[in-house]
Structure formats: structure tokens, C-alpha cells
Design a protein around this nucleic acid. Sequence first.
DNA 1: TGCGCGGTTGTGAGCGTGCACAGCAGAATG
DNA 2: CATTCTGCTGTGCACGCTCACAACCGCGCA
Lengths: 344, 344
Amino acid sequence: MAGNGARGVRKTGPSIGDVARLAGVSAQTVSRVSTGREVVAPDTRERVLRAMEQLGYSPNRAARALRDGRYGSIGLLAHRFDRTGEALTTDAVLRAAEDQGYSVSLITVHDAESDKWEPAARRLADQTVDGLIIMRAEGGPGDSFAMRPTMPVAVSDSRPHGRFPRVASNEFGSAREAVWHLLDLGHRTVHHLGGPEGSEPSRLRAAGWRAALLEAGIAPPAPIHADWTAEAGHAVGRALADDPDVTAVFCANDEMALGLILAFHEAGKVVPRDVSVVGYDGIALSRFSVPPLTTVQQDFPRIGAELVRMVLSQIGAPRPFEVADVVVPSELVVRSTTAPAPAR
Amino acid sequence: MAGNGARGVRKTGPSIGDVARLAGVSAQTVSRVSTGREVVAPDTRERVLRAMEQLGYSPNRAARALRDGRYGSIGLLAHRFDRTGEALTTDAVLRAAEDQGYSVSLITVHDAESDKWEPAARRLADQTVDGLIIMRAEGGPGDSFAMRPTMPVAVSDSRPHGRFPRVASNEFGSAREAVWHLLDLGHRTVHHLGGPEGSEPSRLRAAGWRAALLEAGIAPPAPIHADWTAEAGHAVGRALADDPDVTAVFCANDEMALGLILAFHEAGKVVPRDVSVVGYDGIALSRFSVPPLTTVQQDFPRIGAELVRMVLSQIGAPRPFEVADVVVPSELVVRSTTAPAPAR
DNA sequence: TGCGCGGTTGTGAGCGTGCACAGCAGAATG
DNA sequence: CATTCTGCTGTGCACGCTCACAACCGCGCA
């Protein structure tokens, strides 16, 4: 008997042919019922549906993908997914993608070197995705990467060499606003606890900080760079606690801000009475820290939705796609870690 | 759903045949080079590689998946991915999967009703995954779900009706230990802020709490159920702050614990002087809250790795697979939110 | 009777791969 | 010289699905 041959263990379920045989129709008719794109006589349809049910049939997606050249899936590329910013964006992307009938595949780039991005991105063409969303990448020189666009791409929080459509918060403006909030409270200067030097969001937030200080005629003190973690923020806080000049710190994310606050607290400096602190991101816990954190709230759901929209609108569209950046507004939320500068 | 009907747009890249033509060999030889599973003469190989490079060829995964009956991907199913526990597990699963050459697809079940799990799981057979990891699901009656195992499944933190291999922390034991820690500090009773009633981890942690109290000969007060969020913890904290009997609270996760602590703080109750609080999960920020949170540290990386191992070991294995639960130890980490009971 | 028509269903083909099974040289062996 | 062996490469096929096209059926109408 030809056929079964050396095909090892049959691991695929029943095929369209099995359903067709059981229902006494052709495979094409089963396909019609399955896709719903064409009309089938009611009784035939009923018979086919029963056969499907009986066999537990569900269409083989690989075959479908091969046939239509589409996977119905988009890839999400990042260094890691367990940090708050990434997790929130991931969830938002997932929801937006599902609304459009797409699934989401996660892909990590382990090496932070920007040089390694290209091979990584190349490998992605090997993935079963129709498009790619690249999330914040840090560590490399300037978050930059060059990529031959072999599929639709949208970028978040990074600075590509090529021109890809991009979604970002208004980082510069929000950072500037946050620093002005501190200046308006009477602080003589505002220190900055920034992200890694290579990171694009880090760069933009630092730029906003610097701009505000310069506008106020204040010479910016040297910014401190750390790796986004609360632990790093805590370490920096210990170093800063002894400096009487430090009455206000603008942090590039909430985790670092919270670590910083703990260090101040441990050193006997009360926030906000002695030092004011502002974070960035607006993570859920920022509302419930002790004291609640003044921060810049990013609109992660909207960022995710925009990223998905950008990628999907390129799929099936003739190249070149109109490349446009989308800026999603973010908002300073004043809570209880900022107060007027202490009297001297 | 966007009416995406664009047919006829050819979006696939160069095929194995294109490479073969350019290199002057047969498609099979290109395949040999591509898979590396067979020997090819060095100069031929070189020619093929050059042709691949020139055309930017990469193998079509849909065709491969169709041929092999495998996708090289596993699905990760959860309600949401932006909360800490899920995000940490997701990251761990992703890393473990990539180590084994698998990618990870995210799938959400929007409806919390356990009845909706089955259709959802059914739909999953429609996904391009070889196996499935089901993460903590809450909201339904008892996190339970029945599923016809059409593919390898591993379960985390849930209670399936069918028997699937399962990974869990030692929730009962850890919770018990955490509560004993409070009792040893002299607290006359320990209140419990639990997760949703339907949730399995919630149930186990509550059971551990109850067991410890009963062992100590204390009648457990009525537990309070909330939805895992810091916001809910905050609301509960406001209600509890006025009760002088409340000197110790065991919370089913860290977020709720932090919300609770803020509420106590706002009500003038000092943690841990007036009230001791213990969390659960060991999220990164628990180390850096003010004051640092005593909590039960889960080993998320190991949980993720075990889940992946379980699913992959079923792939290609003859059914039925030996169903065994794996318990990953978790550890009470004593920090600064617990202290001896206040003198009365 | 012949023709056309709309509604349904079947047939053939091919998407890109990789396995089984040749073929075909050249070298080693009898 | 014939024969086997070894190393490399090509041919045919099937994976499951859906599209284009053709075929069939019953009916209405001239």
C-alpha cells in the first residue's frame, strides 16, 4: 500500500480529505464550509459540519498559510518581556492584534549589541509572521539598527537607520514638562537619573530634562545613567542622599524612581519634604507606592494599537508605504512625591 | 475584523526553486544546504549559499511546517500578560522555549467564564502551535476547565478537569509558612487578603493561611477576596485600617499588599509597627517598596523552564504521556513589613 | 424540443519543502 | 575488463489547502 510509508508518527489531525470522505462530498466543498466564503446548500453544509464535529477537524494552518502566503500573525521583538514597559506594550499589542484577527509571536534578541540586530532581524524572516513590531531596544549605540525591510515593520521607542513607521510617546515634551513642574515648585536645580546611554527613550527624556533646565537658565548637572531597574535606582539614591544640593530628581522610569525613594528613605531623607522625585511610565504600582509617585503616564494601550495598525496597514499595501511617525501623548500625573523646595 | 480580502498580491519571497535556478542545481540540493542534514560537495554548497545570499532567500516556514507536521512554536494561553506574575512567567517561558529552538505565540482568553475555555481551547487547534501552556486563569469557578487534549498541554496554576501535567509553586506550604512567620511574631491572629474566589492559586494560598491558623488554635477570621490589583488592595486597606484587631495581614500577591500598605499609611497606621503585612510572588519592586516587603518569592524562571520542558517532552512522545505534577519550591523572604505584634 | 440561467458541486493544479528512491559518475576491487 | 562501492546530485511525490474553471442539475421560457 502506497502512502503511509515511512512517515513516522502521524501527528497531524484529520485532514480536509477525511472530512470530505465522511460527509460524502469533495474536499472543495469542505473547504467552502470551512472558510464560509462561498455558498453551500444548507443540507450539505449540515452534513459537512457534522463530519467535522465527529472527527474533531480543524483546518491545518500551515497548509493555509502556504496557500495564501499569509500567516495571520505578527512578531513582537524585544530584549525582554518581563519589565513593566514591555509587558504593558505587549499586552496592548496582543489585544489590538486579536481584534484584527492576528496572533502575536514573541521574539527576543539576546544580544544588546546593535550590530547583532540585523542578523536577528534577518532570522525573523524565518519566522511565521507577516509583519514585525520592534519594541524598545537598549544597550546598543543609540538603539539604531539597519534592516532590509523584507516584511512590514513598525517601531516603538527606537531609532532605526532605515525609515520605518514609528510610534512613540512625546518623550521630549513630557520630560520637559515634568522638569518644569519641579522648577515651578521652586527647586534650584533638578538632577536626572536616566536610562542606559544607548537607549533612545533614555536619550529623549534626558534631552527634555536638559531643555527645561536651559530654558530656566540653569546649568544642568551631570546626568546619572542606570539600567532601568529599581536596584540601580536604589544604588544611585544611596550615593545622592548625602548631597544637600539634591532636592529634586527626574527619573527616566518609575522603577528607578521607586528604588531611589527607598534609598532616600533609608538615609533619613523624607520624600517629598526633603527631596522631590518624578518618575516616568505610569506603571500600575506608581499610584500605590508610599508615597504615591508623581510620574509621566504613557498611554500603552494606544501605543500598542497604533503599532498594530501600522503593521497591518502595510500588509497587502503596495510598497513603498507612507512612512509617518505617530506621537502618542503622555501626561504628567502629579501625586505625592513632589513638593515645594525645602527652605534653605 | 477588517475586511481584508486582498488576493492576488504575491508576497512570498524567493523560493527554493529560484535559488536552485540561480545556482544551477536542483531544488533538492538547495534543500540539502538549507537543512544541513545531508552532505553536499563544498563548491556546490558555496554556489548555493551565494545564490541564497544574492536573492535574500530564507526557507518558507509554512511549507516546512506543512511538510514536517510541526510548527516549531508553542502557544501560551492566559487572560492577560501585563500583570507581574504573568509577565515574569511569559519571559521565562520564552527564554526556555528559545533555548530549545521553539518560538512562543501569545493567546488570550477574554472571557473569564470557565465555560468559555473549551471553545477557546478548541480554537487553539487552529493556531500554528505544537503545544500549549496554560497559565493561571482566574474568574471561572475553580479555574477548572475540560479540554480534549488535541495537542500537548502543560498547565500552570490552574486546575484542569482532565489530567494534564502541571507546574506549580508549593503554594499551600509557602502560605502556611508565611502565616506562621506572623504568628511567631506574636500576632494573635492573621487576616487574609486573597485573590478572586474562583482562582486556584488564590484557593491554595487561602488554604495554607487557614491551616496555619488552625494549627495555632486560632479561629480564622473571614478572608477578604479581591482581584489581585493594587487598587483593590488599597480599597480593602481603607476598610481594615480602623479595625484594631488587624495587626497582621497575609496577602495573596504583592500588588494587593502594596495597595494595602499605602492605605494603612494614609490612615496613620505605620507598617510594620502597627500592622505587619506579607505579600506573595516576589515581584522585583517588592524589594524596593517603602518599607521593603516581606513576601513569598516564586521561582518564575524555573516555572517557565519546567512548563516548556513538559510540553516539549510530550511532542513526539507516544500517548499517553506520563502525567506528573512538578512542584517548584518558593521561599519566604523576610524584609521590613513584618514586626512583632504591637503591645496592647 | 432546445436553450439559457442561476445555484451547487467537483476536478485539476500548485503553493514550497523535504523524504525516498533513483541515477550517475569515478574510484576501488575482483 | 567487469563489478561493486562511494560520493554526490536529480526526479517524483505528498503534505493540506484553496483558487480557477468546468460540469452538472433543475427550472423557466421561447
